[in-house]
Design a protein around this nucleic acid. Structure first.
Length: 498
RNA sequence: GGCCCCAUCGUUCAGUGGUUAGGACACCGGCCUUUCACGCCGGCGACACGGGUUCAAAUCCCGUUGGGGUCACCA
């Protein structure tokens, strides 16, 4: 069997959105699974909508996801000549022809057909049988023309075997003589795409099911050119909660890959989630620790035929996106090797200007950093949580949460006295560990005849600014003796309500 | 509307003739506990409908309904 070659051909009309990301991911998985090459092709032909910035954004999105390609990015516009040559060849062979009908004429005919309740409203083929004289006349008039592919109805039907949807057959009576070159001389997608895929020796076309209907036309084109038809695999679409097709226009940033990067998703967790939207290995597995795990499990057979819903919640403060996506991210966040998590957190801390190079250098500081990540990550969902929720561990300047202040610190004015006394006890400790700190705290609690929770919760708020977090003795150790005592004394006045 | 595709809990993914229809997320309880999480235990919750075929149907066939795709000189 010859080498598998697939392609991802985004049109640069905006950022990379989840539909495109999923298509790219599946192509990438397929190539990694079967061994082959992925070619990236920017389909920028025509379109006032295509922009350089968009192409750049798409590339960045792919890179962030960790999707690598083997060839390209090619620019479809660089091959315009080839596309035109293919059209010319088709005309030369009599498989395509110039059509001089204007849009207005066509529109009028469609209206008429509609009025007459005819089911077929495509092109009627009137220019197909133009005599040489008629043609010459129209040319002399300087009438603009498009090139139409001549659909040979005699064959009856076109068929192809879709790797996902199975054998597919479309009656040729349903197809009209479709346009392959615009009046401005620029070939259309349906043709360019075929020419490009042939030139790039694409063996498997894995794309969205929205392309299912123009596949027959493309099969006809391949055959007319005498080219081998690639295998097609169409993937069911991703819909929004209201079952509408996902689009950048309608859904905004929640469907942009960039959104997930900016909100603290791990690239791989995002891929893991995307892969599960419309695919499964046939078992109940959901977490794939590494790309290798997923690649191994991936099969085209596992791709679903039915559309899936990307269940994002608009305006829900608890779920910024599909809850499952958040869950998968959280799973990876707290189970992945901490050494691999570290660089991601570093990036976040650096961006927030609270990073210290010592945490990267090895030795004690490095160990502390990793231990601290281990300590806090279990309750986090996003990488961004490390700069917000975990801030007190990495920086002495941390915000005091109003609610926690009220509930724990100001619960009893006497805490203004208790906290410094706790600091004194902790200061006196020769050995500062889980056992000694707990013993010290409990001893104080006993002497004061108060509930442990009163002091513990107040200490947590004083130390971290938050009412929630790791066990208090773990916090003591993570902060260290000096910082713990200093903060307890520093924040004590807050208990009195200042 | 024509043509095409699809149809299992709210979402997602299993289940391809015989299952108490399973897992995950979400939701609701409980346990754990100094808080919040994690974890553990439990609950809620689906085969769209109607006909067939069969001893037996979520699984096969037909129809209906519902949803989606597409009908461009966009890609």
């Amino acid at each position: 069997m010859s080498e598998i070659r697939v392609r991802f051909p985004p049109s640069p009309t905006g950022y990379l959105h989840i539909g495109g990301a999923r298509t790219a991911l599946y192509n990438w998985l397929l190539v990694k699974k079967l061994g082959g090459k992925l070619v990236l092709r920017i389909e920028d032909t025509d379109e006032e909508r295509s922009t350089e910035a968009s192409a750049q954004a798409i590339l960045e999105g792919l890179e962030w996801m960790g999707i690598t390609w083997d060839e390209g990015p090619y620019l479809q516009s660089d091959f315009a000549e080839e596309h035109r040559a293919a059209a010319d060849e088709l005309v030369r062979q009599g498989k395509a022809y110039r059509c001089y009908c204007t849009r207005e004429e066509l529109a009028a005919k469609r209206e008429a057909a509609k009025a007459a309740k005819q089911s077929f409203q495509g092109y009627d083929g009137s220019c197909r049988s133009l005599s040489e004289d008629q043609r010459a006349l129209l040319e002399d008039q300087g009438r603009p023309w498009v090139v139409r592919f001549k659909v040979d109805r005699g064959e009856g039907a076109v068929s192809f075997d879709d790797l996902v949807f199975g054998p597919t057959e479309v009656s040729l009576a349903e197809l009209d003589d479709f346009v392959i070159v615009r009046s401005n001389g620029v070939p259309l997608y349906v043709l360019s795409n075929v020419v490009d895929d042939h030139r790039d020796r694409i063996t498997h076309v894995l794309r969205g099911a929205d392309h299912l209907v123009n596949t027959p036309k493309q099969v006809l084109l391949y055959r007319a050119m005498g080219w081998e038809v690639p295998a097609f695999a169409h993937m069911a679409l991703t819909l929004d909660p209201k079952k509408a097709k996902i689009s950048k226009r309608r859904h905004g940033e929640v469907v942009a890959v960039q959104f997930y990067r900016d909100h603290g998703f791990l690239p791989w967790a995002f891929c893991n989630f995307m892969a599960l939207l419309g695919w499964s290995a046939g078992d109940d597995r959901e977490i794939y620790e590494t790309p290798e795990d997923l690649i191994q499990a991936f099969t085209i057979e596992g791709m679903a035929k039915r559309n899936s819903v990307f269940n994002y919640r608009k305006g829900d403060p608890k779920f910024i996106t599909d809850p499952k996506a958040i869950h998968i991210n959280a799973q990876h966040l707290r189970t992945m090797p901490v050494e691999i998590l570290a660089p991601h957190v570093k990036q976040q801390l650096e961006a927030a200007s609270i990073w210290s190079d010592a945490w990267d250098a090895g030795g004690e500081e490095r160990d502390w950093f990793l231990r601290t990540l281990e300590l806090v990550r279990v309750r986090y969902n996003f990488l961004t949580d490390f700069v917000t929720l975990a801030r007190a561990f990495f920086d002495d300047d941390y915000p005091m949460e109003e609610k926690a202040l009220r509930k724990s610190l100001r619960k009893d004015p006497a805490l203004a006295d208790y906290l410094p006394r706790l600091a004194d006890r902790l200061d006196d400790l020769e050995i500062f560990d889980l056992e000694t700190t707990e013993a010290a705290l409990r001893a104080l609690v006993d002497e004061l005849s108060i509930k442990p929770g009163l002091l513990i919760n107040a200490a947590r708020v004083a130390l971290t600014g938050q009412g929630v977090g790791p066990g208090i003795f773990d916090v003591f150790l993570a902060l260290g003796q000096a910082r713990t005592c200093a903060r307890l004394r520093e924040k004590a006045p807050l208990c009195a309500g200042e």
